[in-house]
C-alpha cells in the first residue's frame, strides 16, 4: 500500500514539475503581452529534438553529466528557435496570435512525424532512448523505491528564479508593464518589442524543457504520433488557474498532476487502497480522470473571469501609432 502511494507521488512530481515549467512558459509570454497557444507545438519540437539528441548520445557512450547537459540545452535551444516563428510574425508584423499559435501546433506534429518516419525508413514513428542518466532512485527498503529525477531540482530552481525575476528585478517589472499597458511602458522609454521577444523566447525555452520533463521520466520511447497529448493546453489551464502568478501556478500544477497521475494508475491504486476493481464495466475509465482538470478550470473561469488577473494587453499587437 505504501508502494502505491510512492508510485502516485513519483507520477505527481513528474507531471507537476513538467506542468509548472510549461505553464511558466505561458506565463512569461502572456505577461509580456503575447498569447502563446503554440506551447503544445513548442513542446513537441523541443521534446523531439532533445530525445533525438539523447538517443544519439546514448550510442556514443559519453559520461552522464555530458548527456544531461547536452540534452537539456538542445531542448531549450530548439524550443526557443521554434518560438521565434511566433515572435517574429506576431511582434513585428502584428499577425493574429491565436492563428499563428494554431499553425505552430499543426506544423510541429507533421514535422515530428515526417522526421521520425524518415529516420526509421517509413516503418516506425517512435524514438527509443535510455533515460538512466536522469533518474535518481531513492531506496527506503527492499521493494520500496521512490524514483526522483533531475527535473525536480531544475523545476524548484526555476520556480525560485521565476519569482525573483518577475517581482524583484527591473527586467520583471518592465516585462509585466509591457503586458499591462504597453503604451505607458513605451512612453517611459521601454522597448516593448524587445521585452515581448524576451517573453516569447523564455516561453520557448521553458516549453522545450517542460517537454522532456514530461516525456523522459515516464517512458523509454516516444511516439511522435501522439505528440504530447494536449499537455501544452493543460499547462495553459494551469496558468489561468494560477492567475499568472508563479507560486500559485506551482500549487495548481501539483493539484492537476494528482488527477493526471490517477488517470494512469487509478486501477492499481484503488485496488490496493480500497480493494475495489474499477473497470470499464463499472463506469470508470482513464478518461474520467483526464477530464476533471479541464472541467474544473472551466468552472473556475466561469466564476472568476470578471475579476481575472489576466494581463490587460495580452493578445493585442502593440501599435506605436495608437499611443
Amino acid at each position: 500500500m505504501v508502494g502505491q502511494f510512492l508510485v502516485l507521488l513519483t507520477y505527481m512530481l513528474i507531471f507537476g514539475i513538467a506542468l509548472m515549467l510549461v505553464a511558466f512558459g505561458g506565463m512569461f509570454s502572456e505577461r509580456s503581452g503575447v498569447i502563446n497557444i503554440g506551447l503544445e507545438g513548442i513542446m513537441v519540437v523541443g521534446g523531439f529534438t532533445a530525445l533525438l539528441v539523447l538517443s544519439g548520445l546514448n550510442s556514443l557512450g559519453v559520461p552522464n553529466f555530458v548527456v544531461i547537459i547536452v540534452t537539456l540545452i538542445s531542448a531549450i535551444i530548439s524550443g526557443m528557435l521554434y518560438s521565434l516563428l511566433l515572435a517574429v510574425v506576431c511582434i513585428n508584423f502584428k499577425a493574429d496570435q491565436t492563428l499563428v499559435g494554431t499553425a505552430l501546433n499543426l506544423l510541429s506534429t507533421s514535422l515530428a512525424l515526417i522526421l521520425t518516419k524518415r529516420l526509421s525508413g517509413g516503418v516506425s514513428t517512435s524514438i527509443k532512448y535510455n533515460k538512466d542518466a536522469f533518474i535518481i532512485p531513492l531506496t527506503f527498503k527492499e521493494g520500496l523505491t521512490l524514483n526522483l529525477n533531475i527535473f525536480l531540482f531544475i523545476g524548484i530552481f526555476i520556480l525560485l528564479i521565476s519569482i525573483f525575476v518577475l517581482y524583484k528585478t527591473k527586467f520583471g517589472l518592465r516585462l509585466r508593464s509591457c503586458g499591462e499597458n504597453p503604451s505607458a511602458a513605451d512612453s517611459v522609454g521601454i522597448n516593448v518589442k524587445k521585452y515581448r521577444y524576451f517573453g516569447v523566447l523564455i516561453s520557448g525555452a521553458l516549453g522545450g524543457l517542460g517537454a522532456i520533463a514530461y516525456i523522459l521520466p515516464t517512458q523509454s520511447f516516444w511516439n511522435s504520433a501522439s505528440g504530447v497529448a494536449g499537455f501544452g493546453f493543460l499547462a495553459l489551464a494551469v496558468m489561468i488557474f494560477g492567475q499568472w502568478k508563479p507560486l500559485r501556478i506551482f500549487i495548481v500544477a501539483l493539484v492537476f498532476s494528482f488527477f493526471m497521475s490517477l488517470s494512469y494508475i487509478y486501477y492499481d491504486f484503488f485496488n490496493a487502497l480500497l480493494g475495489i476493481k474499477l473497470t470499464a464495466d463499472k463506469g470508470v475509465t482513464k478518461e474520467l480522470f483526464s477530464m476533471l482538470p479541464y472541467i474544473a478550470s472551466l468552472i473556475l473561469l466561469a466564476f472568476s473571469s470578471k475579476k481575472s488577473k489576466a494581463p490587460k494587453a495580452e493578445g493585442i499587437p502593440y501599435d506605436k501609432g495608437a499611443r
Binding site: I35, I37, T98, G230, F233, L234, L236, A237, I240, A280, D281, G283, T285, E287, L288, S290, M291, Y294, I295, S297, L298, L301, A302, F303, S305, K306, S308
Partner: peptide, 30 residues
C-alpha cells in the same frame, strides 16, 4: 460563457475541446 461570465472564447474553447474528446471516448467505452 462569453456573454454572461466574460470568459474568452479561445480559452473556454480549448478546455471544451479536450472535455469533448474524453467524454466521447468515455461514453463509447462504457
Amino acid at each position: 460563457l462569453k456573454t454572461f461570465c466574460g470568459v474568452s472564447e479561445v480559452i473556454s474553447g480549448i478546455m471544451l475541446n479536450w472535455i469533448s474528446l474524453f467524454f466521447t471516448n468515455y461514453s463509447f467505452q462504457t
